[in-house]
């Protein structure tokens, strides 16, 4: 049973990681690429960690794998935010097909604090 779960989870994880990488290549600009890189790669890697938990149980390996999941959740989301905000501040425009940009107004009003 745990072996079936292990293979299922690790397969799903690698598949989602692959989708994330394809997205990274296909999508047009940095913000859209971050979408695919953050979501797919985080869930994919969490699936791989969960598969280790299914394989080894709550022993040494399993606990560490379990601990990876919340750490990855916090770090990857914060990194995505920092990258998106940083690239906007650095002057990278949105893709030309974008339909809306509310942030440009806020950008003009906000004093830059260093």
């Amino acid at each position: 049973m745990s072996d079936i779960l292990f293979y299922l989870l690790i397969g799903t994880g690698i598949l989602f990681d692959l989708f994330g990488c394809i997205g990274l290549l296909r999508l047009p600009d940095v913000y859209n690429r971050l979408q695919s890189a953050t979501k797919c790669v985080t869930l994919g890697t969490c699936c791989i960690a969960a598969s280790l938990l299914a394989r080894y149980g709550l022993a040494d390996f399993g606990l560490k794998a379990l601990l990876i999941i919340p750490l990855l959740f916090f770090t990857s989301t914060v990194a995505a935010h920092a990258l998106a905000r940083g690239s906007y501040k650095a002057g990278i425009r949105l893709w030309k097909g974008s339909v809306k940009d509310d942030y440009s107004k806020a950008e003009a009003n906000e004093p830059v604090k260093e």
Binding site: R26, D29, Y31, N32, V99, K100
Partner: peptide, 10 residues
């Protein structure tokens, strides 16, 4: 066809 319509909303 990549069905995306990206934008930043408030």
């Amino acid at each position: 066809a990549m069905p995306i319509r990206p934008g930043i909303v408030k």
